[in-house]
């Protein structure tokens, strides 16, 4: 299968190092303390954050830091087949864990001891890169909730098909079975906090693919910062400052 034409275009018309169109909106769930919708192309994810609040199950209470919990689900309508999506299966448990660990590493949990923060993310529409979109949505929602963070953690994936590193794979590219590297990145600290890959790649190619994913993370971080900026301006305006 030809995923990159000799003219250098991918199936959807992007060039290898181009990301899909990003869209984001803050505050979709008014009941939550913070929420956001994040779109990467046709992948659409909603995140809601509750907390910091009192720990529900006292057995889980941590004395010197906040407890971070995360629940990842996929809406039944998120893929074309409209099949009921299982909850608590291996895949969603794993993704929940990945998101929780990534966000926990970024939240300044020591400032909120004996409290609990709940992050809910749901995939509304899936077209590849859902993991990354979830992390990006969660970051926005946490920022919206005013939870103190070390940095804005962002995520992006990159793959390797037709001997070409490709940024931000969509579903068709993802299904090709090639390597898919997902990176979580703290842009200000210049640190990788998440790195996942299911297949094998030689070291030098892996490095170029990972570097591409990091560039993607940086671009997303710029975008998220802009969105937050715009959101703050709106708030200021509404409060008449």
């Amino acid at each position: 299968m030809e995923f990159v034409s000799p003219e250098g275009l991918r199936l959807d018309g992007r060039r290898p190092t181009e990301m899909r169109q990003l869209r984001a909106a803050i505050g979709a769930v008014s009941k939550a303390d913070g929420s956001a919708v994040f779109e990467m192309g046709n992948t659409k994810v909603i995140a809601a954050v509750y907390g910091p609040r009192e720990v529900e199950n006292k057995a889980e209470l941590i004395n010197d830091q906040a407890l971070v919990r995360c629940e990842y689900t996929m809406a039944n309508f998120s893929t074309g087949d409209r099949v009921r999506k299982p909850k608590g299966d291996r895949r969603s448990t794993e993704i929940s864990l990945v998101i929780r660990q990534t966000m926990e590493a970024c939240i300044m949990t020591h400032l909120m001891p004996r409290s609990q923060i709940d992050i809910f993310v749901q995939v509304l529409q899936a077209d590849g890169g859902t993991r990354s979109a979830c992390i990006n949505a969660a970051t926005l929602a946490l920022a919206d909730a005013g939870i103190p963070m070390r940095d804005l953690v962002t995520s992006c994936s990159a793959g390797y098909l037709n001997s070409t590193p490709l940024l931000d794979l969509n579903y068709v590219e993802d299904s090709a079975g090639g390597p898919d590297v997902t990176v979580g990145f703290l842009p200000k600290l210049d640190k990788v906090t998440l790195l996942q890959m299911d297949s094998k790649l030689s070291m030098d190619i892996f490095q170029s693919v990972m570097q591409l994913a990091i560039e993607g993370c940086k671009a997303i971080a710029n975008y998220i910062r802009e969105v937050l900026h715009e959101n703050t301006k709106q708030l200021e305006y509404r409060r008449g400052v």
Binding site: G13, R14, G80, N170
Partner: peptide
Amino acid sequence: EKVVKEHYL
């Protein structure tokens, strides 16, 4: 199944 694909110009 309805398939939706992005198409960049």
